[in-house]
Amino acid sequence: MMNLFVLQLLNGVQLGVLLFLIAAGLTLVFGIMDVINLAHGVLYMVGAYLIATFAAATGNFWWGLLLMLPAAVLVGMVLEFVVMRRLYARSHLDQVLATFGLVMIASEAVKMIWGTSPLSVPMPEILSGAVPLMGPLKYPVYRIAVIVAGLAVAVGLFVLVNYTRVGMLLRAGATNRSTVSALGVDINRLFSVVFTLGAVLACLAGALVAPILSVDTGMGESVLILTFVVVVIGGIGSIKGAFLGALLVAIVDTVGGVFGPIWLRQILDPAAAGQVGRVLGPMLVYILMAVILFAKPAGLFGRRA
């Protein structure tokens, strides 16, 4: 039982760092730009397709990852200039409708370019093994590498936001956008930097998960809901909140989904425990969100409006 718990805990941490990469960009875009971007999951999908394309063309995962990063920067800059810049002064309803339409357009464009069949990305050989943890338990090296990469990005974002001039502008923009603009800061350039950074982080998450999951057109939609839950729990505009919220959501979702039916067997018969567990499992994340928002309506590290 302990081995299973440790395994699911590690799976939760790995999912958490991926959710953080997606949620960090989304919370910055919402907190600083005041834009609701339902197409953020599309960027996660695009990152996976980009690395699948570049890795197949070069025959090497690492070259694919290196080529994916500048491509993600280009995608973010073009998307911000062509679409998002037109939405800054519009209402949230207009933003929701426009970005939802962008999701539909992007999904069809991906089908036209790459087809409807799922793609696969070969795992780099150096990370293809497993390491022993405790007893017979082993954990894949690649998943550990994903955790380490996600933590490294989290540390880098923490330094960027708290100890650099760009980070100072990001924090100021999240607190009072109009004052930052009045002080002479080019707000459009700041918004472009924020959106492009968020796009790169989401694409990086898609690229990292590509060797683990199949790359398909529906992968962005499935992760977007969890990402919004992370942003709400952590507090809009907070990187620290996005990190803690991502870990909480991922661990509750992973560990609770496996151990929920096991714990319910202590009070219910196995058949009923399995049925109730399957119903309650997907609800645990939203129960967690309701409890946290009841105690802290602005999220763990959010600002009360």
Score class of each variant (00 low, 15 high):
V13P: 04
L18R: 01
L19R: 00
G25T: 10
L26K: 00
G31W: 11
V35Y: 02
N37F: 06
A39E: 04
H40A: 10
G41W: 00
L50N: 03
I51S: 03
A56S: 14
A57G: 12
T58W: 10
W62H: 13
W62I: 07
L65Y: 01
M68E: 02
G76N: 10
M77S: 04
F81G: 06
M84L: 15
S91R: 03
D94S: 13
T99S: 08
G101Q: 09
V103G: 04
A106W: 07
A106D: 05
A109F: 11
A109H: 08
I113N: 03
P118V: 08
S120M: 13
P124L: 10
P132C: 08
L133N: 02
G135L: 10
P136A: 11
L137P: 01
V146G: 00
I147E: 00
I147Q: 00
V148G: 05
G150A: 08
G150R: 01
G156Y: 10
G156H: 11
F158L: 13
V159A: 15
V161K: 09
Y163F: 13
M168F: 04
G173D: 09
A174S: 15
N176E: 14
I187W: 11
F191L: 10
S192W: 12
L204K: 01
L208V: 06
T217L: 09
M219S: 09
M219R: 09
L224W: 04
V230S: 03
G237I: 09
I239M: 14
L244E: 00
G245Y: 01
L248Q: 01
L248A: 13
L248R: 03
V252C: 05
D253C: 04
G257Q: 07
G257T: 08
P261S: 10
L264C: 08
R265V: 00
I267A: 15
V279R: 08
V279A: 15
L280D: 02
P282L: 08
M283D: 07
L284H: 03
V291K: 01
A298E: 11
G299P: 02
A305N: 12
